[in-house]
Simulated scan of single mutants.
Amino acid sequence: MWYALQPGRRARQIIGDGAALLWIALWAWGAVTAHRFLSLSALPARPAPGPRPRLPLLGPRMTGTLHDVARAGDRLADAGPAGSAPVQALAVLVAVALFVVPVGLLLAVWLPRRIRWTRQAAAARELAATEDGRELLALRALVRPLDELARFTDAGPGRLAEGWREADPVVLDALADVELRHLGLGRS
């Protein structure tokens, strides 16, 4: 059982799950964008194409040779930019941190609560199917604050405790229903 039966609680659970998925998606998008931006900044700058400048005092032959060497250097830089390795590593590190930190914090808070509710709801449904289980649910309802019990039942707390001790089926069912409603599984 992933969601409560009560419409209000179910809506809050669905909205919470959707918000968690949206949070994860937004941070994934942010991490990918940051990685791309940092990776682009590691690319070498390209000089604007145009006429080759003349180098004074060297002559046209030496100028052409120096330009050929410069073009060969550009081809080597294009083949494997060794200077960009630290920037690439930084880009990966930043992207991972941008994703892991906020998503990890969300999962550390949201996921245990969600799993705990799911396990409690499954156990409560299983207990509600048996007579002894309903008695245990009734006992669990009795340990709730008195104002919670008063909201869900017409009988006073003394009558509820007495009915539980005497194993009154009506009182046991009422108390078990209080516990199920508390988990969002009973009738509102």
Rank of each mutant, 00 (worst) to 15 (best):
R140T: 06
A124S: 04
M62C: 05
A72S: 12
G133N: 05
A128W: 06
V92R: 09
V171M: 08
A34T: 11
L136C: 01
L55V: 15
A95R: 06
S39M: 14
H182E: 09
S188Q: 09
G163E: 07
A121G: 11
T65C: 02
D147S: 13
S84M: 11
P81F: 14
L127D: 09
P157F: 05
M62K: 09
Q88H: 15
L137G: 01
T65V: 14
R134Q: 11
L180F: 00
G50D: 05
L21C: 05
R61E: 15
H182K: 05
A89T: 12
V100W: 10
S84K: 10
L98Y: 01
A25D: 01
L66V: 05
A150T: 12
P169K: 05
M1T: 12
V92K: 05
Q13A: 03
R151H: 07
D168E: 09
P51G: 06
G64Q: 12
L21A: 14
W110H: 14
L43V: 11
D78P: 03
A150G: 08
R54H: 10
A129F: 04
A25C: 07
D177K: 00
V109L: 11
A77Q: 15
Q88I: 04
R75Q: 13
P86F: 06
V32Y: 11
E135V: 08
V32H: 10
L66G: 03
G133M: 04
R9Q: 14
A79E: 09
I14V: 15
G158V: 13
G8D: 14
Y3Q: 07
P81I: 07
A89H: 11
V143N: 10
P56M: 04
Y3F: 15
A167L: 12
S41E: 13
R114K: 08
R116V: 08
L185I: 03
W29A: 15
R9I: 12
L106A: 13
L22E: 00
E135H: 13
G163P: 08
A128Y: 09
G184Q: 01
W23E: 01
E162G: 04
W164G: 00
V171D: 00
V69E: 10
A20M: 04
D177N: 09
A72R: 14
W117P: 01
I115L: 15
A72K: 07
A174W: 01
L58W: 09
S41C: 00
L172A: 05
A70W: 11
W29E: 06
L22R: 02
H67Q: 08
A77C: 07
F99G: 08
R116L: 11
G158A: 14
L183C: 03
L58A: 08
